[in-house]
Structures are given as structure tokens and as C-alpha cells.
Amino acid sequence: MSAVIEVQHLHKSYGDTVAVDDVSFTVADGEIFGILGPNGAGKTTTVESIEGLRTPDRGTISVLGLDPRRDPAELTQRLGAQLQDSQLPDRLRVAEALELYSSFYRAPADWRALMDVLGLAAQSKTRFGQLSGGQKQRLSIALALVGNPRVVVLDELTTGLDPQARRDTWALIEGVRDRGVTILLVTHFMEEAERLCDRVALIDAGRVVAMDTPAGLAGRVQADQRIQFRPSVPLDDALLTSLPDVTSVTRRGDVVVVTGNSNALNAVTSVLARHQIVAQQLRVEQASLEDAFIALTSSADRN
């Protein structure tokens, strides 16, 4: 496994505020690697250090074997960046922006083709200030790709987009990965990380608290199952509370909410079957990446 990005013991403070305490991770070639964490966890400072926008106080960073601070000229040729809250001049047109940015690179991609791929052909003459949020975001992805980079860093890519635009953007990112580009993705959307990322680093208070596949992270949380249903006939709670796998039974109107371990669903359904009760509108909630996020980041707070 060849490493495209290697971050070791990164530390960065602003005055008395520690933005990044100690962060290390490695991103492999062709991977979509997610950086997840609550607001203020140090995600953006970490990726800005990788992009060469920040000088770390301690630690080492290597991107494609380059040090972002020592070799910015070469790094910027090979790394494409999509920054949080970065805009273009309002009166600059889409095609002009792409043509301008393509002139910055040694071996740029065909910007016209990129404009088509990102669904911006119809807006080629539209001024930046008149684009919708989704169009601006797609243009910023196009600009991150116009230099034909080996690595792309995308920071809060889909924040502010509506659900449809968000899903369209995810499909685009998968397309970029299929071209062999390594992607570092900063997000606070669990669904986005679950859908796109091969691996994620969960960062909290400037430290990596967990690093795994999204499913692996979710599996670490021994969260109880929550089972909800509407019984077809009135039901005595004792029937369920007596089960060893069930920890609690509560009611919300005529909906019964049962929590228990991973066996609870089996136990509950067999008891109901024995008493010929049908569980209507049955819903089971299992630990997700979001549960892992909450569990792992709040445990770090207590330390």
C-alpha cells in the first residue's frame, strides 16, 4: 500500500488555542479518506496544513513525498483544493474561471470537458455571483480538478446544498475516484462519510480518536438495539421485561419501544409470536456511524 498523504504528530496552536493537538494518519493511493469530527475539532486546520496554507508548529507532513512548506511549487501542481467558503470574483464567468485556472498548471485537464462532466456547460457564460449554491460548489470541484491533480482535498463539500444536489455531488466524487485520484474529504455529514469513504479518521479536540472503515467504526459502539412497534392487541410490559436480552420497555402512545442487546429482536419477536401478537410498523434501529461519532467524541470530552 503506497501512501499518498502521511501526517505524523501534527500540532498547531493559535495563541493559547490548540487547534490541532496530535494528529497522525496515512492516506493510501486511490482511497477516499474522510476526516470527521465536530465543529472546532481541528479538521480544517489539519487539511490546510496539508495544502500548505498553514505552518504546523510540530510534526511532519508528506504529500506525494513532498513537504507542503518546503516545496509548495511542486505540491500545488499535484494537489487540487476545494476550500471552505472560498469564492471567486462575482463578475467572473464560469468558462473564464476554468480557463484562467487551467493556465496555472503545467499539464492541465481539458477544462471544457470538465465543465461538461460537472454539468456546467449551460452556465459557461454565467457570472459566479449568479450561480446557485450547487453550481458554485460544482465549479469549485471543477477548479480543484483542472490541474489534473493526483490528490484532491475537499473541505465541507456539500455543506449548504439541498439533498438532491448533495447526492449528485457524491456521484461526481465517486467518478473522480474512479479516475485514480486520491481524495481527502472533510465532512460533518455521517451519511456522506458512510456513502463515500473507504476509511475515516474521527477527530475530536485536536486528536484522532478513532480510525477505521465507516462500518468498522459503527461496529465499535456497543449501542443497544431499539425496537419500536405497535402491538395488534394490548400487551403486558412484563412479557417483554422478563426477557434477559431486553433492558427496558417504554411506551409512546400505543407504540412500544424496547431496548436491548443484539439478541433482543429475536427474543421479542418470538415472545410476540407465541402470544399471537403482530408487531405492526416494526422498526429496528442499529448503531450507525452517527452513534459511533457521538459515543467516541463525547467520551473524549470527559477525559
Binding site: 500548505g52 494537489l79 472560498s86
Partner: peptide, 9 residues
């Protein structure tokens, strides 16, 4: 705009 340009060659 300037920050974005810093990430280009």
C-alpha cells in the same frame, strides 16, 4: 479569492 490562489502554482 486570494486564499484559493495560494493553493495553485
Amino acid at each position: 479569492v486570494l486564499r484559493r490562489l495560494r493553493t495553485t502554482p
